[in-house]
Nucleic acid binder design. Sequence first.
DNA 1: TGACATCAAATTGTACACAATATAATTGTG
DNA 2: CACAATTATATTGTGTACAATTTGATGTCA
Lengths: 145, 145
Amino acid sequence: MSASPPELRLENQLCFAVYSAAHAFAQAYKPHLDPMGLTYPQYLVMLLLWEQDGRSVNELGQPLQLDSGTLTPLLKRMEKGGFVTRQRDARDERVTRIHLTEHGKSLRDKARAIPTALLCASGLTLDQLNNLRDQVRVLGENLRE
Amino acid sequence: MSASPPELRLENQLCFAVYSAAHAFAQAYKPHLDPMGLTYPQYLVMLLLWEQDGRSVNELGQPLQLDSGTLTPLLKRMEKGGFVTRQRDARDERVTRIHLTEHGKSLRDKARAIPTALLCASGLTLDQLNNLRDQVRVLGENLRE
DNA sequence: TGACATCAAATTGTACACAATATAATTGTG
DNA sequence: CACAATTATATTGTGTACAATTTGATGTCA
């Protein structure tokens, strides 16, 4: 077996850098989310509900790129945790609407400190972070085409 | 409930751009890996074994940032799939050594076409890709500190 | 209106990811 | 050498992801 070409070396892969950074982010958020009882994907759902409450499962899944197979059990755990309620839409019984509980709403104030803490942990300036975010966003969009 | 501040909006999060791009990568690799019978994390293991065969579980886990809780079942599936063998090291019975099968070795030739296909799908030039990879790698390292 | 396509969620089954714990082999120290 | 500490892997339990299928509600059109 000859030497592996550079394009096949793990350390040279953009995909692995992204994969690895994604896991590192989840770990970096953990100390901030654990005290609230939220996981990282649940926190992403909270961000969407703080922006706009009462979304359907699909209206959460579209921006997150997640389907009901992932969201239904995740939302059930969030319901059990007292963060949200799940109820059928009276006008269209196919739709399940997700509403924040008072506790869920109140967590937004505690969450305000998180972005600053993560900016610091990233070791980037705000400009660098925004620039990198835009590049990574475009990459994701291209890959999904 | 007042409007959510910009720092708490999902679309503005670097973490989400990275999270989303990581999933997009896994999907983009899928059509190339499915015909081989490999999943994306299994492909990462194959990259390491093509570079150097006969690694221990830890010698795979260290570069991948994965522990035996993830790797042991993954490697068992790869063993069942006929890609690798798992056997205890005779000199230190605590260690499990992972070796490529002939089939596993032979897949490297088929994999050579993948990096080019993904570079194309990323919509980036090779220079842009290398530059972005380095930025994302540094980000991951900073977050892990 | 009634058969049929469509749609939104939920369910099922497989595969990561990771914390916490267990097990077994090896090492270090008195 | 005895034995406690360490090390490597495996196991257990919980929580995502996602493909494929199912269930139930809504829309459409002859």
